[in-house]
Write a protein that binds this DNA or RNA. Structure first.
Lengths: 354, 354
DNA sequence: ACGCTTTTCCAAAGCGCTTTGAATCGGGGT
DNA sequence: ACCCCGATTCAAAGCGCTTTGGAAAAGCGT
């Protein structure tokens, strides 16, 4: 069933039917109702490909899904995607995802853009200095970056959380509790959020004249296993850290496993703060010791991104170009004062580290 | 840059350029090279919408993503999606995902199918008796069901794992170890895999004349929290189970938390077997007590589904219509013989339960 | 040189929709 | 009765690609 048939059936022209369907004012209300009724009985649906060709609008937003990283689909990506989907569903927009292996993403974006199947693009997993952003700028499509590069002021639309602030606050809390020997289980070093978080922690420590030691920083994919291994490494040190910052609740999961296995008690023997992207199936308050977190829903971010993108395509203006959400620091039981017997040997000031 | 321009540039007809690009034999090799070279320098990409319209082929496969379940995007869905993506990437096919809230999926499928943006459909989260399957059959699009309904023989193409067999084997192992009081932390009762697994467990117990008690079966979304709660409930019983089967590693995660919290030791005081969909970030061998599992990669299933779908669209025939993978039963440390002091009070035979 | 088959290329139709520019139909004003 | 106008409706031209049905060019034997 296509427009032509439907028009013939109604004894109307394609033009009129099309207009009736798309809400144009110059069609008689009675006719419109007749058309709508016919649509209902025939089950007619416009062919999207044809609409695309005719209007140039695709009715969908595209993104590149990293694949074959060996770490599997990131949990974070899935949750983010779900957020996008939420907004998209409301606005009746589809998601086109172009799977691409890491390193090939520039090509994937170009393909996606040139294919004419999407109206807008979303970029995730921003790296510290990311060539893809330039590519996006050169394309004519609206786009929105989830995250931002570090260094100079970004000159493109993005939506990000205040990673630096979050980890600055988190580290500051630990400092206030007397910790001076703090470790960091971070995401991959090339991703910009990881860099920002590290900077945040660094600043907070520096405020107290304390250095963030290199060997106490792990950068890796945010899996349970990496959390475990990293924590184990820390605990095996001659003088283990008294607190640890985790860039993901999944890393924290592994870290807590390592800590438990070592017979230590979280919140008393060692403090831990994790960034929580808010996974409904893995909540920090459900850890055996409820976890202190910096919290910001990655799903909400996805929903917001889709919303903005769709609005922009629809021509609605006046959106802020750049948006930064603050993460909440939620204190639970996994943070506590430095254990007394450790307070002595911890005069590790910046001078000492340099 | 479009075909027409490119053709003019090369002083050829659109026909010839199109054919050169699509590998038709009736074009001179020299001309083809010339065309290819021009494509490279101009960066020409065919407009997919136009291709779609002309060929009727969309170059993408569609699926409906459940949204707004309140449980967030299922981990399992993400990993499955990643598998689809893997195959899709290889064949240069896109994934179109139509987000839809639960209950609305029939409409979403129809929309997707009628929109002409996809060549084939994949259906996930099959329910015990699923109206969507009939809808799919009525559509003209190729489709593949991940899972299958229970009851009568399925008369549609599907790809599934042997859920029943997996849990039969798992339960049988527990029986052999002497367990007679076995609990089940299962997925949502309406999903067919959950039904199959339950049946499998039921059969294995029945073989030994043991009943699967209703109050020892929990059906719920497969989250860590639900695993914890369910396990807690079991442990609070007057006579707690000596073994538990979990339908997901995520449930098992919660269950182990509950067990640890109760001061019990897994593999000694209580046995646990989980189904492992193979999440790279959450491995059963990394649990504090490595977990015995029934294992089958859901990502591999996704990859296989995309592969079959794409092949079918391409007209390749001879694929098996229905495919069932066996899950491996991998024994690790979380299963052990019934604790001695429990062997007595467990004469719970079917007669007793009836 | 001639008919014949192959090879190579082309013009034009068509996919299902939107949209431009024009036609049609009643009324209201005069 | 005539003209003009707003309200409706329509025919036809594209959107950028594939594909059908030829046609021109080239190769071949004789």
């Amino acid at each position: 069933m296509n427009l032509k048939e439907l028009a013939r059936l109604l004894d109307l022209s394609q033009t009129t039917v099309s207009r009736a369907l798309n809400g144009y004012p110059e069609v008689n209300e009675a006719t419109r109702q007749r058309v709508l009724a016919a649509v209902k009985t025939t089950g007619y649906r416009p062919n999207r490909a044809a609409q695309r060709l005719a209007t140039g609008k695709a009715g969908s937003i595209g993104l590149v899904m990293p694949t074959g990283t060996g770490d599997g689909t990131d949990l974070h990506f899935a949750e983010f995607l779900s957020g996008l989907g939420e907004s998209a569903e409301i606005r009746d927009v589809q998601l086109v995802i172009d799977p691409s292996r890491v390193g090939n993403e520039v090509a994937a974006f170009q393909r996606l853009a040139a294919s004419g199947t999407v109206d807008a693009l979303s970029l995730s997993y921003v790296r510290s200095s990311d060539p893809r952003i330039e590519v996006l700028k050169s394309l004519k499509l609206p786009f929105l970056v989830h995250g931002r590069h570090v260094g100079s002021e970004p000159d493109y639309p993005f939506m990000d959380i205040d990673n630096k602030g979050a980890f600055r606050d988190a580290a500051r809390l630990l400092m206030q509790l007397g910790h001076r020997y703090i470790a960091l289980l971070n995401g991959p070093a090339e991703l910009s959020f990881a860099v920002c978080r590290r900077e945040g922690a660094f600043e907070a420590l520096a405020d107290h004249g304390v250095a963030l030691e290199e060997r106490l920083c792990q950068h890796s994919a945010m899996t349970e296993e990496n959390g475990y291994r990293g924590m184990m490494r820390f605990l095996d040190m001659q003088e283990p850290p008294t607190a640890v910052l985790c860039s993901s609740i999944v890393l924290a999961l592994g870290a807590t496993r390592a800590i438990h296995q070592s017979g230590l008690q979280i919140g008393r023997d060692i403090s831990i703060i994790a960034h929580d992207d808010v996974f409904p199936y893995l909540k920090p308050e459900n850890f055996s010791t409820p976890l202190t977190t910096t919290t910001s829903s990655i799903r909400a971010a996805g929903a917001r991104i889709a919303e903005r993108l769709i609005d922009e395509v629809a021509g609605r203006k006046g959106m802020p170009q750049q948006e930064i959400w603050k993460a909440d620091l939620i204190v639970r039981a996994s943070t506590g004062p430095v254990p007394a017997r450790r307070r002595r040997g911890t005069k590790r000031h910046i001078e000492a580290a340099e």
